[in-house]
Design a protein around this nucleic acid. Structure first.
Lengths: 202, 202
DNA sequence: GTCTATATGTAGATAGAC
DNA sequence: GTCTATCTACATATAGAC
């Protein structure tokens, strides 16, 4: 029983911490709130994760890093640019739907400590190379116009991530409910790749 | 001299506070840091702005709200969609260049307290209406394809704001310097409207 | 492994001299 | 208007019982 319980508690802590950290950010998060949400007390938090920084890293390694990793992985093995874009956008949006606070959380922590999360970013390097190659190939075949591939990647990620980052602004200014927002996001799995490909097709 | 000095100090405080708040967010910002950066001490901060919350509001009213306001204003008086998009993107990027931390700051505070900043968002309502009308007109004239105008607006804002929000990620993953980043942003004043218009042109 | 109680540090805010 | 010194509150972290 003890082994099971240990895993169970640690897991509950990590899930609670992920929620609190992504809601409030590193600075705004309270250990007490994490403890409450995990159904334990503060002391036990420190028992499992010596201090706040290590708890944060525990969340990041297990959660955010893995989620973003599998977005990049969606590019692996693709041979055609358009197909790669569709897969990437779908993977990106699906992960964000699972954890809508993630993009803002990442943006904040990357801004707070750019060096600390270098390993996280580096995970995407290989896929970035593949993406650049797919763009170059498509360009050579005359399928797309001449465009800076780095800018293209920025645009793609912008259209995937931004709705989640600016969600309160979007729902308010367009006067839509959370449910309507969700439907809009689902639609974007299709409309975003279309939007991008229309723009770059030769 | 005293009147001048009062204005001078209050102004220096607001500028310092804007920098610290946008760097660290509301929760992460320290009154001490604001005081240091303004070249005064904490007590004087509280003399000018009773507490942290009011200091925050002082910064927001005078700075962020005004800056975003003039982005929306760039749409006023436009009669053609493409021209409006070009003006909007240029205004958006120019304001962000002046204050690169602003988008992340806004995103955070909107997320923290959606109701509190309602007035801020509402400032854009009028221009939003105009934008929707310009899209409808262009659609009627058969100049653009059939697209959800709200999604279009989301895409435009995404491409303007996201580079600033994800800046550490972009510079690191593409291995570019801050100077190269700046050049990329300047280029985007032109390339983003082109990208968008290519995508929606009938 | 989990709790209660407590120590320690720090940030926001005030008092009061000049 | 500006400062030094101080109070208070709260968050992180630890000690120690069970």
């Amino acid at each position: 029983m003890s082994a099971v319980k240990e895993e169970g508690t640690e897991h509950r802590i990590l899930e609670a911490a992920q929620r609190v950290f992504t809601r409030k950010g590193m600075a705004g998060a309270r250990m007490q709130e994490v403890a409450d949400e995990a159904g334990i007390n503060k002391a036990l938090l420190h028992y499992y994760f010596r201090d706040k920084q290590r708890l944060f890293e525990g969340v990041f390694k297990g959660g955010a890093e893995k989620q973003f990793g599998c977005i990049w992985d969606s590019l692996k093995g693709r041979e055609h640019l358009f197909e790669a874009i569709e897969a990437f956008v779908a993977a990106y949006i699906d992960r964000m739907v699972e954890n809508p606070q993630l993009p803002l959380f990442i943006a904040n922590e990357l801004n707070r400590d750019p060096e600390g999360l270098r390993a996280f970013i580096d995970r995407g390097m290989e896929s970035r190379q593949l993406f650049l190659k797919l763009v170059a190939d498509a360009r050579e075949r005359g399928e797309i116009i001449d465009i800076d591939p780095r800018e293209l990647l920025v645009n793609i990620m912008a259209m995937c991530a931004h709705p989640f980052i600016a969600r309160p602004m979007i729902t308010h200014i367009h006067g839509i409910t959370d449910e309507a927002f969700r439907r809009m996001i689902i639609k974007r799995r299709k409309t975003v790749p279309e939007f991008i490909i229309r723009s770059i097709r030769a």
